[in-house]
Simulated scan of single mutants.
Amino acid sequence: MPHEPTTPAEYWDKYKPHKGKGPQPAPQTDRFNWTQYSDHGPGAEILGSPRRALELGPAEGTEAAHLAHQGVDVTAVDFSSVQVARARALWQGTPGLAFVHAEARAFLASGSTAYDAIYSVWGAVWFTEPEELFPAVAKRLAPGGIFAFSQAEPVAGLHGPQPMRGKWLEGREHELTVLRWQFTPEMWADILKRHGFTHIDAHILKALDPRDQGTLMVRAQAPAQRATPPRAAPISTPGPAGPP
């Protein structure tokens, strides 16, 4: 019998905690990692030099903390209350770092703060319908701001929303399933272009071991200037009638 998709918050509430109980030491923040392999691939330079950044789906918040330690004002949004509580405990007192419990699209639609960079490291971009998420991201980026995300290399021939299951969870009563969106780099570039992004770079970063899974890396830029609607032509009104 096929499994019904789990609510995403339920999945992520249960995903990380299985790795350990009780207080845990904070991860190292000396490097910004886009891939699942330590010290592999580019770092925070992908984001340029942002003063204010937004992370969508930070999990334990390691990358957000890395940026905050570099002096960036970082807001990190996650819809798992468990993940947010854990991240707040790990990075309590870190200047310029705030973790918010919210769904990514709802958060983007709820405010007006402009960010120099919006990014997702194997996070919310992977698990959210891009046709809904990307226009919301574009509205919250400062002119010329960077939108960047990474996720697993797509499986050949499987495009669009695909089920991901967490069979490893201990003590589960049923298999947990969520949907994740995967496309080829060319498809991601086309989607971004349709939503007004420019300077798009989408490619697969191969793993050091060719037998391992690669990482999809995507970087795009908001237009340097916001498009403004054309002004309506003035409505001409007839002047006073002249002498007959």
Results as ranks from 00 to 15, higher is better:
residue 3 H to L: 04
residue 9 A to F: 07
residue 12 W to S: 07
residue 12 W to H: 10
residue 12 W to G: 04
residue 13 D to G: 07
residue 14 K to F: 04
residue 15 Y to T: 04
residue 16 K to Q: 14
residue 18 H to P: 01
residue 18 H to T: 10
residue 22 G to E: 05
residue 24 Q to R: 14
residue 24 Q to E: 09
residue 25 P to H: 13
residue 30 D to G: 04
residue 31 R to H: 10
residue 34 W to G: 02
residue 35 T to L: 07
residue 38 S to W: 09
residue 39 D to A: 11
residue 40 H to G: 00
residue 42 P to C: 01
residue 43 G to C: 02
residue 44 A to G: 07
residue 45 E to T: 12
residue 47 L to E: 03
residue 48 G to I: 06
residue 53 A to N: 03
residue 53 A to T: 07
residue 53 A to E: 02
residue 54 L to W: 04
residue 54 L to P: 03
residue 54 L to H: 06
residue 60 E to C: 00
residue 61 G to A: 02
residue 61 G to W: 03
residue 62 T to V: 09
residue 64 A to R: 01
residue 65 A to L: 01
residue 65 A to C: 09
residue 67 L to D: 10
residue 68 A to H: 07
residue 69 H to T: 07
residue 69 H to G: 11
residue 74 V to E: 03
residue 76 A to I: 01
residue 76 A to K: 02
residue 77 V to E: 13
residue 78 D to T: 08
residue 78 D to K: 08
residue 80 S to C: 04
residue 82 V to F: 01
residue 82 V to M: 00
residue 85 A to E: 06
residue 85 A to V: 03
residue 87 A to C: 06
residue 87 A to Q: 06
residue 94 T to K: 03
residue 97 L to P: 02
residue 97 L to D: 00
residue 98 A to L: 06
residue 98 A to F: 01
residue 99 F to K: 00
residue 101 H to N: 14
residue 104 A to G: 08
residue 105 R to P: 00
residue 107 F to I: 06
residue 107 F to N: 09
residue 110 S to V: 12
residue 112 S to Q: 15
residue 114 A to R: 15
residue 116 D to C: 08
residue 116 D to I: 04
residue 116 D to K: 08
residue 117 A to L: 02
residue 117 A to E: 05
residue 119 Y to N: 03
residue 122 W to C: 12
residue 123 G to W: 07
residue 124 A to P: 11
residue 129 E to S: 03
residue 132 E to R: 09
residue 134 F to W: 10
residue 136 A to D: 15
residue 137 V to H: 06
residue 147 F to R: 04
residue 148 A to M: 13
residue 148 A to V: 14
residue 149 F to S: 00
residue 149 F to Y: 07
residue 150 S to W: 06
residue 152 A to M: 02
residue 155 V to A: 11
residue 156 A to I: 12
residue 157 G to Q: 14
residue 158 L to Q: 12
residue 158 L to F: 11
residue 161 P to V: 15
residue 162 Q to F: 12
residue 165 R to P: 00
residue 166 G to M: 05
residue 168 W to L: 00
residue 169 L to E: 05
residue 170 E to T: 13
residue 170 E to K: 14
residue 171 G to E: 05
residue 172 R to Q: 10
residue 173 E to M: 03
residue 173 E to Y: 00
residue 175 E to A: 02
residue 177 T to K: 11
residue 178 V to E: 02
residue 179 L to I: 06
residue 180 R to F: 14
residue 183 F to C: 05
residue 184 T to H: 14
residue 184 T to G: 13
residue 185 P to I: 04
residue 186 E to R: 14
residue 187 M to F: 09
residue 190 D to V: 10
residue 190 D to W: 04
residue 191 I to E: 04
residue 194 R to H: 09
residue 195 H to W: 10
residue 196 G to L: 14
residue 197 F to L: 02
residue 201 D to I: 14
residue 202 A to C: 14
residue 205 L to P: 01
residue 205 L to S: 03
residue 208 L to G: 11
residue 212 D to G: 02
residue 216 L to I: 13
residue 216 L to V: 12
residue 218 V to N: 11
residue 219 R to C: 06
residue 219 R to Q: 15
residue 223 P to D: 03
residue 223 P to W: 05
residue 223 P to Q: 08
residue 227 A to D: 15
residue 227 A to F: 09
residue 227 A to K: 13
residue 228 T to V: 15
residue 228 T to H: 12
residue 230 P to M: 11
residue 231 R to M: 08
residue 231 R to C: 03
residue 232 A to R: 10
residue 234 P to V: 07
residue 237 T to C: 10
residue 239 G to M: 04
residue 239 G to P: 15
residue 242 G to R: 14
residue 242 G to F: 08
residue 244 P to S: 12
residue 244 P to R: 11
